[in-house]
């Protein structure tokens, strides 16, 4: 518990009063999040609650209408999304977005774009520094392929993988960029119970052994309640409740939002 006390002083990601308006539609209204280092934080809520919109604001796909987003103390609201991901926030998508016609291994090499020597001349002439960084990227990719059980598929086209494998590849592709905060948008959607259990185990392992904090959107309540350290509930764009899994699952408002009033 001592680590938690330390973390409370400096949270990894601090979101305040986040508001996103599309014309007359208020999609997200004054949402606040605080994500501690080394924790798994979840955002839940009914369909259309604005969870993915929050994700899109955090990762720079949308420029939030109002509010502040602080990552390691630095304000990143309104930054371009490639800049944000370079700072160490990497996400997956609700619908898998792999580079479908590239091989599994290439998917992981592309993701390490900025870690490889991208100087044109040194690449053309295969200088030693280029070969070294390229080999490092290859080894790093190999390690992660092994980790998500896709080593045998390395040279297959990504679109030929089974759906569960594609999900795992997408997570591996995020991990090779060496992120600090991994954001997963419904990673269990479309997975069977066995695959969901494996995912559960994978996420916990990423947190414990790979120094990454996780922000999760998920509808699978068994997964969310089992894995999360802290949960935020959003309903119709506004924060509804927050707390530890046991508090949230006992909260009357949350039950009402999910099941409707009797």
């Amino acid at each position: 518990m001592s680590s938690q006390n330390n973390n409370q002083n400096a949270s990894l990601l601090e979101v305040e009063e986040l508001t996103m308006r599309f014309g007359g539609l208020l999609a997200v209204d004054s949402v606040a999040l605080s994500i501690q280092e080394g924790q798994i934080t979840s955002i839940i809520g009914p369909n259309g609650a604005g969870k993915t919109t929050v994700f899109n604001c955090l990762t720079g796909f949308y420029k939030p209408t109002a509010g502040s987003i602080r990552f390691k103390g630095e304000d990143i609201a309104g930054n371009k999304n490639h800049e944000i991901s370079r700072k160490g926030i990497v996400r997956t998508f609700q619908h898998v977005r792999l580079f479908k016609n590239m091989t599994v291994l290439e998917n992981l090499l592309v993701a390490q774009h900025r870690h490889i020597n991208t100087n044109l001349l040194s690449g053309l002439l295969k200088t030693s520094s280029y070969r070294r960084t390229e080999q490092e990227a290859l080894d790093h990719a190999a390690y992660w392929l092994e980790r998500v059980d896709l080593a045998d598929m390395a040279n297959r086209d990504a679109c030929n993988l089974a759906y569960g494998q594609q999900r795992r590849l997408e997570i591996a592709r995020c991990m090779v960029t060496r992120p600090t905060l991994l954001m997963l948008d419904e990673p269990a959607a479309g997975l069977n119970p066995k695959e969901t259990a494996e995912l559960d185990e994978l996420i916990s392992d990423l947190r414990s052994n790979h120094n990454v904090s996780v922000l999760l959107i998920e509808h699978d309540m068994k997964l969310v309640m089992g894995i999360s350290d802290y949960i935020y509930v959003i309903n119709q764009g506004t924060p509804l409740a927050e707390g530890k899994p046991e508090d949230v699952s006992a909260n009357d408002d949350v039950i009402k939002a999910y099941l409707g009033e009797a």
């Binding site: 490639h82 990497v90 592309v110 774009h113 960029t177």
Partner: peptide
């Protein structure tokens, strides 16, 4: 090639 395949994923991985 990654840009051809999916430009959104490209940006989310830190590519300009």
């Amino acid at each position: 090639e990654a840009l051809r395949e999916d430009d959104i994923a490209c940006q989310s991985l830190g590519m300009n």
